[in-house]
Amino acid sequence: MAELTFDELSVTVDQHPIVRELRLDVPAGEVVGLVGPNGSGKSTVLRCVYRAMAPSGGAVRLDTTDLATLTPRESAKRIAALTQENSVDLDFTVAEVVAFGRTPHLPGNRSLSARDRDVCRDAMARLDVLRLAERSVLSLSGGERQRVLIARALAQEPEVLVLDEPTNHLDLRHQVELLTLLRNSGRTVLVVVHDLNLAAVACDRIGVLAGGVLVASGTPADVLTPELVREVFGVDVVVVRHPENGAPQLLHSLSTLEVDPDGQRA
């Protein structure tokens, strides 16, 4: 089990600061949600974890190790990612795509061992795609493909999972199942979610990004207040408690979204 720490992480692209001095802890075994408006830097933060981008300042640490000191393969053995790339170019079967998750564990071109196959089979079963194993990924629906790619990330057997909008394309049942699975996975999870109500029930902690700056972090109940949602998202909401688990849930009243003839919000 590993803890993920953002230590003054800054990312600058073409002189534009995208993320500024982010300090955030993802404790071992917890699910932390990252929320914020479009373009607030959420995906950039995740990219620094799965090594698609390098920090321009600060560091991302896995326990005490600076990720920048690990080779891509070393960090891929410990961190798996679901990116926003939801397409596959070639006509691979579902089983083949899930088996790509074993790549960091297989030096060179070594073929899958019996254990590798078991790991893949288990991952497919958990994402409810085992019956699709021999189907072409290109023939699947968007939601099915998303589940295949998540199974691929699980097959990597990572200590840390980072997921960029994993509930995209998923129907309600699979959204709930996925977040349940993340909660019960025992792994350290950092996830970007757009649905604040789902985030509130699924995450131990939530970090709120706006303009590349972490404006709040803490338990869902601490963070998801009407004032913060107003400030960050520019929307008025009513916050109620979930009758069973006490998680904050946001109710929208459409009147706040009405647009007057000048295009201004009423």
């Binding site: 698609a52 891929a76 691979f92 083949e96 790549t103």
Partner: peptide
């Protein structure tokens, strides 16, 4: 295997090492 993984996209390939 590297060529296989490239078909998932560059970022995903990177996340697989």
């Amino acid at each position: 295997r590297a060529l296989d993984v490239l078909s998932l996209g560059d970022e995903t390939a990177g996340s697989l090492g």
